[in-house]
Design a protein around this nucleic acid. Structure first.
Lengths: 225, 225
DNA sequence: TATTAAATGATAGTAATACTATTATAAATA
DNA sequence: TATTTATAATAGTATTACTATCATTTAATA
């Protein structure tokens, strides 16, 4: 039995629900591939339409513009990741073990999980590393936030900060530490691959080194307080 | 006596040196103001030209495109900040005191220093917080890096990582910790102002709280190892 | 089965963006 | 005075980021 889990996405992110039709799913699938390949700046709805074999206007029926599409994809990713984390850490009692597992999941390359056929999570992970911050580093953060576009990201951080507080109830910065490890899991990966002198990770490009760094960072902070 | 210190910028960043003429300086000054006001996405050379009272073609004689201009401005900022740090921590023997001072400088709002009349460092600091990552989160990072566009940023991180190693020679991740505190000084500020639930900082929006967070993060890591 | 609605395809058009090129003029310098 | 240098003025192109219209296919429903 193969069960499909559908994420309930914020309806303000799209004009027509892309999960509800073939063209919609094709838009999601190919936008991930094209943004991955060309980068978000060079990505246009025209090119996407050509790739899919539809027209620009066709894409615009689903997404207002490419910024909304990026926000949609990143929100999808954070929702998906939160589910992965809740699934993989379910029934783990010890919050320390739990937090270690979370750090591992944050900093590990994702393998495409087949469950959700139309989105390649592995590519999407790469996109979120390289383009994800652009979803909120804009002049419209405020309005976008009011419309709850970043809820999945904030929820993930909230989940992590709760585990941090379980590990160490007296620690004073659980939320900031949570957003720090989420961001750094990505940034250190990006730096390792592109600006390696900003990291201590060898040319082997081992993600295990990033995991060790984050574990060290987090647990020395928590053990002390 | 008022001494002007000129930063030597990477020549591949511009077509004509903007520091060498009035129009050039005006471009720098007004681009900082306009990017701050409109955000980098909405910023165009046309609008900039109108603001300055010159033509689009006039801007293009100085900068190839707006990406190069952003890279120029961020590089300028990191160079300027490294100088501020080296100046303000000069003659401090104790590396712990030094590192604390650095963290303070990283996370404090900048006040325009008058020394360099044409660039408003305070606005530029805000720009680097909100747009700075876009300088390297692109498909061309590799090439840009080969042309040493990110040297000032990497040098600043290198300086900080050396102080970290002085504080604790056995600490295994001085470079990653350095890039982490630089990035987090900015991201936590951005989050505090725009997505506050990602932080533990009160509505007072006190930068001193961010400084405390970073100090805690860094010094528990270093004391332990 | 016929009717109708929903989704898509095809085409066209507009305003703004991101440039390049050319020519004229003013100011600085040799 | 001749000449280089910087800038202004104007024009033009390809691409981007959309919006609008209408025809056609597909699917749902009466």
């Amino acid at each position: 039995m193969k069960l499909q889990l559908q994420m309930k996405m914020n309806e303000a992110l799209y004009l027509r629900n892309p999960e509800s039709s073939e063209l919609g799913k094709s838009i999601l699938k190919h936008s991930v591939q094209l943004i991955y390949k060309a980068g978000f700046e060079a990505f246009t709805f025209k090119k996407l339409a050509e790739e899919i074999g539809t027209t620009e206007a066709g894409i615009y029926r689903y997404f207002e513009n490419k910024h909304k599409l990026l926000v949609y994809l990143t929100a999808w990713y954070w929702g998906w990741l939160e589910f992965q984390i809740s699934f993989q850490t379910n029934n783990i009692e010890d919050p320390v073990v739990k937090l270690k597992r979370i750090i591992m999941l944050l900093a590990s390359a994702v393998e495409d999980d087949q469950q959700t056929n139309h989105i390649d999570e592995s590519l999407l992970h790469q996109i979120v590393i390289a383009e994800g911050s652009k979803a909120y580093l804009t002049k419209q953060v405020g309005e976008d936030n009011k419309q709850h576009f970043f809820k999945p990201y904030k929820e993930l951080c909230a989940v992590i900060s709760r585990v941090i507080s379980e590990c160490s109830p007296s620690y004073k910065y659980p939320k900031s530490l949570a957003s720090t490890i989420v961001e750094m899991a990505h940034f250190q990966t990006f730096f390792m691959n592109n600006l390696p002198s900003l990291t201590d990770f060898s040319t082997k490009k081992e993600e295990s080194e990033i995991i060790s760094f984050l574990n060290d960072l987090v647990f020395t902070s928590l053990m002390k307080s």
